[in-house]
Design a binder for these strands. Structure first.
Length: 718
DNA sequence: GACGGAATTT
DNA sequence: AAATTCCGTC
């Protein structure tokens, strides 16, 4: 069943399938890229370089070859591969670093979400540092995920759903690992993973991950981390690389054996390493202390790695924290507490700063985590000489203290000062479609053979152009799904013969949203984003809904219909929440009851606080502030941050994101042949968790384990 | 080289 | 849905 209600999905489908996707159950390119990036052997071919999340393809042909091998597409070349990469621009998974050849940059927000849906990635890409501060390790109730069955898991859904569903889903998926299609897989995988060694590597990472890893932890960190932190720094922070024992790192040619990837933004594998460490233990990175959340410009969180091998781990505690964090976020955003009614168990934490965490923890964790991975080393080295390009930055030793580099200043030279990008639209007549062109010229299909004409299909792809609503991140996409953009309609009209107008936000990725604070009432649907427009419309409508729901009282946990509604409501109800929040809100599984919400003021002390308490908003705090307003406000902040970071490479976001309807993965699970996954499922993160592991947790973990194992087996069969 | 539309394939 | 192919334009 795909009913959304059944499962709970919080993000767009595509986000869940790092490794497999309906359309292509094979490994996805971005995933593959990450895979290469994490392996030292390929550093001569592709490596992290420059900015955070930025990587350069040093040997395009080789990368293409590898990709082709993986996909069994011998004809693959950089031109094609790059086309595929360009498709990621719209998805916001990647963007091009302009001016640098073969250089692209990951949008970690997106990636993180993929692997760690629960994470508060900060909304929209831009994190909201303040709004989603790490939650204090929780104390409180233990959150439980609703049970989800496999079927559920797979169900696709574009809307936001409860985390629980997702969680499990993700976990399973992760467990599966990625695939190699080439049937036997032999060849393909071989390219990348040679021998088991590969496995070792990956595994190592996982274990290592403990250091940083936990999703939870990562998430939290995310907000804290300075955008500019160097990869290295991150490592340290998370303890990943630093951890001597722990890190598996294949020794690189250079001899620095750091972690898998020196520059990798994903310092630690997402895998839950030592559980505790990662998840709950928060951040501790010196960075933290050094940089208060408030000013950290936002950066995609590198903490979590979407890497392939990674297994998703979840921990109830995390969940709890997650929820709490969101709760807090909500407040920060000025969202109505009503939103929380659904989550009675959640206590809204007092705002508190990450800084509070103890510094030093990271290092501790690292040590713990480290253990044993290391199994196999890869002997394989790229033929290429180790080039100088490598960035020496790896931290060889684990320093617990922040590295200077990363912390730098927010305004780095290279960085542009944060600029607000006004939301702009580019109105332009769409170029004639090929068909049209052809038609004009001839009518003949471009490639000889297929002639027949129905060309109906083509349009669809294009339609996306317009304005899709996307709030920076996944959520956005999710939200977008429901939205019908004017542009699309326009396009359709176009097919009818009407003029086609392409409306697209010029702004960058995360910035699609308008940042200005405006009164909702005044909005002009016309200009601006269609998105907003839609949003508001939706919004208003929703609110009613929402209330309705509330009145109903507690809805059963799983009624599809209800869920749907609920989802919708939730989805819409709160102000357009930052993406990160969405999942939370939507979760239908959450228990409903009255929650004890403590209305906490927004983080006191924080600059942000000011934000929420701004005069205009302040009044509203308790009340309903025009959602839009709040949202925007928040957004603007985020945007600003993000803006500084992201260039405005990304351009438009298309509806495509939003509309993914997911499909479920089918039976065959694919496994990465890397060895890593092949064997046994990695330990769950929370196993060793920080806080006392509860029986329940264990139970959960056990289940996951089991599931994972099973999946692994299945995969093998496949 | 980079971009992105269109048609196709998986 | 995500690529893969081609290809025209910058």
């Amino acid at each position: 069943m795909k009913t959304p209600g059944d499962t709970g999905f919080a993000f767009p489908e595509w986000a869940y399938k790092p490794e497999s996707s309906p359309g292509s159950r094979q490994i996805q390119l971005w995933h593959f890229i990450l895979e290469l990036l994490r392996k030292e052997e390929y550093h001569d071919v592709i490596a992290w370089q420059g900015d955070y999340g930025e990587f350069v393809i040093k040997d395009p042909d080789e990368v293409a070859r590898l990709w082709g091998a993986r996909k069994c597409k011998p004809q693959m070349n950089y031109d094609k591969l790059s086309r595929a990469l360009r498709y990621y621009y719209n998805k916001r998974i990647l963007h091009k670093t302009k001016g640098k050849r073969f250089t692209y940059k990951f949008n970690f927000n997106k990636l993180v979400l993929v692997n760690y849906p629960f994470f508060d990635v900060g909304s929209t890409g831009s994190s909201v540092p303040q709004s989603a501060p790490p939650v204090p390790t929780g104390a409180g109730t233990h959150f439980r995920f609703p049970p989800s069955t496999p079927s559920e898991v797979l169900s696709p859904n574009e809307d936001l759903r409860s985390p629980g569903g997702m969680f499990s889903t993700v976990a399973r998926r992760m467990a599966r690992g990625s695939v190699s299609d080439c049937s036997d897989g032999t060849s393909v995988n071989s390219e990348i993973e040679e021998g088991n060694g590969g496995a070792g590597e990956e595994r190592g990472e996982r274990s290592v991950s403990g250091g940083g890893g936990g999703p939870g932890g990562g998430g939290n960190y995310r907000s804290i981390i300075h955008p500019r932190l160097s990869h290295e720094a991150l490592f340290r922070m998370y303890g990943g690389p630093g951890n001597p024992a722990g890190h598996p790192g294949p020794r690189g040619p250079a001899g620095h054996r750091i972690h898998q990837e020196p520059l990798s933004p994903f310092p630690v594998s997402p895998l839950p390493g030592p559980p505790g460490a990662s998840l709950l233990a928060p951040p501790l990175s010196p960075a933290l202390s050094m940089t208060p959340t408030s000013h950290l410009p936002y950066t995609p969180s590198p903490t979590l790695s979407p890497m392939l091998g990674s297994h998703f781990s979840f921990n109830p505690e995390d969940m709890k924290r997650y929820l709490q964090a969101h709760t807090q976020s909500v407040y920060n955003y000025g969202l109505s507490p009503r939103a929380f009614l659904q989550y009675p168990n959640i206590v809204i934490p007092q705002p508190h700063r990450p800084a509070a965490d103890k510094p030093g923890m990271a290092s501790e964790r690292a040590e713990r985590g480290g253990g044993g991975e290391r199994a196999g080393e890869r002997h394989h080295h790229p033929s290429l000489a180790h080039s100088a390009h490598h960035h020496p930055q790896l931290p060889h030793s684990a320093h617990s203290h922040p590295h200077s580099h990363p912390m730098h200043h927010p305004l780095h030279l290279g960085e542009e000062p944060p600029h607000m990008s006004p939301f702009k639209f580019k109105l332009q007549p769409p170029p004639l479609g090929r068909k049209q062109r052809d038609g004009q010229s001839q009518g003949k299909p471009r490639q000889s053979s297929l002639s027949s004409g129905s060309g109906s299909g083509s349009m669809s792809s294009t339609s996306g152009l317009g304005s899709s609503l996307s709030f920076g991140s996944d959520l956005s996409s999710a939200s977008g799904s429901g939205v019908i953009s004017a542009s699309s309609s326009t396009q359709s009209l176009n097919s009818a013969g009407l003029p086609k107008i392409k409306v697209e936000p010029i702004s960058d990725i995360e910035s699609e949203e308008e940042v200005e604070v405006t009164d909702i009432s005044d909005e002009d649907p016309d200009e601006r984003d269609n998105e907003f427009e839609l949003f508001s419309a939706r919004h208003s409508r929703i609110s009613n809904h929402h209330n309705h729901h509330l009145s109903n009282g507690t809805a059963a946990a799983h009624h599809p219909s209800q869920d749907e509604d609920l989802d919708e409501d939730v989805f819409k109800a709160p102000a357009p929440p930052p993406p990160g929040l969405m999942p939370f809100f939507t979760s239908q599984h959450a228990h409903r009851g009255l929650t004890t919400l403590k209305s906490e003021p927004v983080e006191p002390g924080e600059s942000h606080a000011a934000q929420s308490q701004t005069p205009s908003t302040g009044a509203a705090q308790g009340k309903c502030i025009p959602l839009k307003l709040r949202f925007k406000r928040r957004w603007s902040e985020d945007q600003r941050m993000e803006a500084s970071q992201e260039e405005s490479d990304d351009k438009k976001v298309r509806p495509e994101e939003g509309r993914n309807k997911g499909r479920q993965t089918n039976g065959c699970v694919e496994m990465e042949e890397d060895g890593e996954d092949g064997d046994s499922p990695p330990p769950l993160a929370y196993e060793g968790s920080l806080s006392a592991p509860l029986a329940s947790h264990r139970r959960v973990s056990a289940e996951l384990h089991r599931a994972t194992a099973q999946l692994s087996l299945e995969n093998k069969d496949c």
